Amino acid sequence: MPTTLVIGATGTVGSALVPDLLARGHTLRRATRQVREPGDVALDLLSGAGLDAALAGVDRVFLMAPPGHTGQDRFLVPVIDAAARHGVGKLVLMTAMGVDADPTSPLSLSEAYLRHSGVPAAIVRPNWFMQNFHTFWMGSIAATGEVQLPVGEAKASFIDARDIAAVAAVLLDRPQDEPEAFDLTGPEALDHATAAALISAATSKTIGFRDITPEAMRGALLQAGLPADYAEFLLVILGFLKQGYAERTTPHVAALLGRPARDFASYARDYAEAWRG
């Protein structure tokens, strides 16, 4: 049974990936900044502290950049180097759909570095998470009853983070290098007003959508405590969403899992209590 290190184990994708891998018989190491329970290993990607200890004896690695930071290659490249030193047999890197449009972007640079590292690899590029609606966008919903974003009527093929985790588990079970980077989407493209209506139907609460200006979004992000450079990064990628770049769908989730990707209505029903609270 492989020993697998999950970096970002307490995050949205990682917390879903851990039980998937346990069900597949993996021995788990959960990388966290603070060790809280057996199976946790201390790892700080920002400083690199604990990196070699976390990777010692590891067969497989799931890697993602720490959220809330730009210049992601600064944190990802040292992990890739360490994985090569320790002879890791498979590394699955999560970036984001669309990063390949700019080969100079930090995530695209990280993908290229991994490809030339000699470590057998797979890359998953998910679209916008469905789970954002009950996490990152929850503040405006709780305060105003609305999802408030500068995206107009643009559609996105939102993906359930549980499906991202399930795909990563499949790829971590395959020892070979994967020549294709997998763009992961949900089964349909929806605008945010439709998504809000589906949440309303699942919760019996009225939740709407309001298109706001980028300036208003910037103010909300800074007020929430996000670093200015990361707030600007979010505004850029929300701008890409508004231009339609997040609308396309791909078949990879269904092909890799042997079942359809979860749709937004199913997600809304599964997490209804989050909005009712």
Rank of each mutant, 00 (worst) to 15 (best):
P2Q: 04
L5I: 04
V6F: 02
I7H: 01
I7F: 00
G8Y: 04
A9I: 00
G11S: 09
G14C: 05
S15R: 10
S15Q: 09
D20Q: 15
H26Q: 00
T27N: 01
T27R: 01
L28A: 02
A31V: 01
R33Q: 11
R33N: 10
R36Y: 08
R36Q: 13
D40Y: 10
L43G: 00
L45R: 02
L46Q: 14
A49M: 08
A49L: 12
A53Q: 14
A53D: 13
A54H: 02
A54S: 03
A54P: 01
A56G: 13
G57C: 02
R60S: 00
L63A: 03
P67R: 06
G68T: 07
H69I: 07
H69D: 05
G71W: 03
D73G: 07
P78V: 11
V79K: 06
V79H: 09
D81P: 09
A84V: 08
R85M: 03
K90H: 06
V99W: 06
D100R: 15
D100H: 15
A101F: 12
A101T: 09
T104K: 14
E111D: 14
S117N: 08
G118L: 08
V119M: 01
A121P: 08
A121V: 08
A121F: 11
A122D: 07
I123V: 15
R125C: 02
N127K: 07
W128Y: 15
F129E: 09
F129S: 11
T135P: 02
T135N: 09
M138N: 11
I141F: 10
I141G: 03
A143C: 13
T144N: 13
G145D: 09
L149M: 13
P150R: 06
V151W: 09
G152A: 15
K155R: 13
A156G: 10
S157N: 05
I159K: 00
D160F: 11
R162T: 11
D163I: 01
D163N: 06
A166V: 04
A169K: 02
L171Q: 02
L171R: 01
L172M: 06
E180Q: 14
E180F: 14
A181S: 11
T185V: 05
T185P: 05
T185F: 03
G186I: 03
L190S: 06
D191I: 07
T194A: 15
A196M: 09
L198N: 01
I199Y: 12
A201E: 13
A202K: 07
A202F: 05
T203D: 09
S204K: 12
K205W: 12
T206S: 15
I207E: 04
I207V: 12
F209S: 04
D211C: 10
I212A: 12
I212Y: 07
M217W: 03
M217S: 13
R218W: 04
A220G: 10
A220E: 09
A224Q: 13
A224T: 07
L226P: 04
P227H: 14
A228D: 14
Y230P: 10
Y230I: 08
A231E: 04
V236L: 15
I237W: 15
L238W: 11
E247M: 11
T249M: 10
H252T: 10
L256A: 05
L257W: 03
L257E: 02
R259D: 05
A261Y: 06
F264K: 01
S266Y: 13
Y267A: 07
A268T: 04
R269I: 08
E273L: 15
R276D: 08
G277Y: 13
